[in-house]
Simulated assay, not measured.
Amino acid sequence: MPHDPTRPDTAHRKLRAVARGLAATGLAVDAYLHAHLAERYDAVSATISQGTLFRIEAAIAALAALLVLVWRHALADVFAWTVAAGGLAALLLYRYVDVGELGPLPNMYEPAWFTDKNIVVIAQVVALIATSVLLLTRRRRRHLA
């Protein structure tokens, strides 16, 4: 039977491929910018510096980007969604609320918008939407008994 690009299975696969690419791209941008900015935030410190937290975010976002590309499993998609949502939540919290120090975490309140922060927000939103699409369009496998 010849390949029919109008078949729903093909459209579904294309949608998931685009979503996977967007998720990985958003997470990679998140990772790059957090790694790039980390040194600038080393002075903001309690037990752990904000620069260290940025490096951790960069590593986790890079891992999520890699997993969403190479391990096409629901756990990878959930992990990537969690990284994007958690990063976005933390960024918005510390943008709008002066939380102060929380245990070993420094006071990361920064009530300003700047180019790199705007790009990170966009990247995290793109990754969040794309991973949501991946999770919502996942097909359950039928088990033959």
Results as ranks from 00 to 15, higher is better:
W71N: 07
F79M: 01
T115P: 08
G51Y: 01
A127P: 09
G87W: 07
N107G: 04
L102I: 15
W71I: 13
A76S: 13
S45K: 15
S45W: 13
V70G: 14
A64D: 02
V97A: 04
A46C: 07
H34R: 02
P104Y: 06
A90R: 01
A19G: 05
L75V: 15
E110F: 12
V121H: 02
L67M: 05
A46L: 07
T82C: 08
P8Y: 04
V126M: 11
F114T: 07
Q124C: 03
R72N: 12
A58V: 08
H12A: 14
T115A: 12
T47G: 11
G51S: 00
R16C: 11
A64M: 01
E101R: 13
L53Y: 05
T82R: 05
V125N: 00
D4R: 06
S49T: 12
L69C: 07
R13Q: 15
V44C: 00
V99F: 00
A112T: 15
Y109R: 10
I129K: 00
Q124R: 11
A23V: 08
A112W: 14
D116L: 10
L27C: 05
L53N: 08
V126C: 00
A24P: 00
I56V: 15
L128C: 00
T52M: 06
P8D: 09
L37F: 09
A58G: 00
W71G: 12
N118W: 13
L66F: 12
L75T: 14
H12N: 10
T82V: 13
L91W: 00
V125I: 14
V121N: 03
A62T: 07
A61S: 09
R13D: 12
G100L: 10
P2L: 13
I129P: 03
Y96V: 14
L33I: 09
L102Q: 03
G86D: 04
A28V: 09
P8H: 06
R13C: 08
G103P: 05
V44M: 02
L105Y: 11
V99G: 06
T131S: 07
V44T: 15
A90H: 06
V125G: 10
V78L: 12
L15A: 14
A59R: 08
A61Q: 02
V18L: 07
I119V: 15
V83T: 07
G100E: 04
V126E: 03
T6P: 08
A76Q: 04
D98P: 00
G87V: 01
G51T: 06
G26M: 05
T10G: 06
G51L: 05
G87T: 10
Q124E: 14
E57G: 13
I60T: 15
V70R: 11
A62G: 03
T82Q: 01
L22C: 10
S45V: 15
A28D: 10
G26C: 04
P5N: 06
A65K: 05
